[in-house]
Design a protein around this nucleic acid. Structure first.
Lengths: 210, 210
DNA sequence: ACACAAAGTCACCAATCAGTGACAAATAAA
DNA sequence: TTTATTTGTCACTGATTGGTGACTTTGTGT
């Protein structure tokens, strides 16, 4: 057994800061962004709320710091070499969207961040969004635009719809929704149907808009 | 000018109930569902919060009652006669989805209800969802399924993605987001691109899955 | 005019919230 | 060991929240 009758805690600023950041993630995942109150966070972190003011300048600073540390689109900015693409990126993009579809499904924290972004105006969320766009723009310009040429705008709009749909269906299925168009989004078979449709729609975009 | 030095209000229960329901809609539209506090609603309605308890049994009852009165899918359950359909419903469905895309864009209250539904588990929201599904099922069964036959599941999955995308893009554009895949969803030109893509994708579904 | 019920207001309570100053405990420097 | 700084706790304030009992005002029926 441990040797401290009176529980003593190692004091470390960076460590404590991380505990607050972790608490934010945990609360977000389990209770949603509306539960991100300063008392709740302090209790979850097991530290005093005063430290949030000392270390982050308040709740806003802590939340912004948390958002800054997040990176949910790492799979999108995978080190791809445009030269190696021979099919206009069809396979790469299909795989990326399918991966993202499953990733959103698995990662509840990401779901809540997406929801948070749809719900509350906030500079750091806006910045997160801009960074995501910047990542996507790389793929769009270097891979899709060169392939679709004068149809690139149409292809972008189609991709926007498909990717958005993949996001929405996962958020929808999580709360208050089981089926969409009669498809059970949380079931294995339902998800496979959606995935098949994603691949099919992208395929159609590539053939029709060429 | 009015004749009352001391402002006297006509006392009417049904009238007051409606004022509360209107207040809920107004707050939802302007501040989002998280601002639906009992004090806020009472102030907005210009009545005492006690009446919310008297008339609706509390905040929950009022919110449930509000949700019950909403019907955002009236254009979907338009009186359509399956017999009159000759193209498998392609034109009808395309128009319906395009209408819905613009309707969500215009109707901020509907946007907030959609967001609410994605955010908070609630029986009345679940019921609203089920009713929407039931409406959609009519179209799916009587129009699409007969046309797509053995491909009906694939067609449903594709429609789910397209409709979901139309919802998500509007929610996305409203808060923290300007562009998605480089398309400005709130601009006239951007929306036309999305609409073109919606029509194109549905067209492709109809030709490819037949 | 009167009584009575319905409609509505108000003052109050308890719980929860953000924020802060005073203090205690641990660590590092001397 | 002593001193000083950092790290952390605690108790308190003031504002906001949901909820309720006692009250006043209005309308209605006799």
């Amino acid at each position: 057994m441990e040797d401290n009758p009176v529980k003593t805690r190692i004091r470390n600023k960076e460590n404590s800061k991380q505990q607050f950041l972790d608490a934010v993630g945990k609360i977000l995942k389990t209770q949603g962004y509306s539960a991100l109150k300063i008392n709740n966070i302090a209790t979850t972190a097991g530290l005093d709320k005063k430290l949030i003011y000392n270390y982050f300048g308040g709740l806003e600073g802590l939340l912004d710091e948390y958002i800054k540390t997040q990176d949910f689109w790492s799979n999108v900015k995978s080190e791809i070499e445009p030269n190696e693409i021979t099919d206009g990126g069809k396979e790469f993009i299909t795989n990326t969207v399918l991966e993202q579809f499953d990733y959103v499904f698995r990662n509840k924290e990401f779901q809540k961040v997406l929801l948070w972004r749809l719900s509350e105006p906030r500079n750091s969320l806006k910045k997160l969004t801009d960074e995501q766009e910047a990542n996507g723009e790389f793929i769009l310009q270097n891979i899709m635009d060169t392939y679709f040429a004068e149809n690139s705008e149409d292809s972008r709009a189609a991709m926007a719809l498909i990717v958005s749909g993949a996001y929405y269906l996962n958020l929808y299925a999580e709360i208050n929704g089981n089926t969409f168009c009669g498809i059970d989004i949380k079931s294995e078979t339902g998800r496979n149907q959606i995935k098949k449709a994603i691949a099919m729609l992208i395929e159609q975009v590539y053939t029709f808009l060429k």
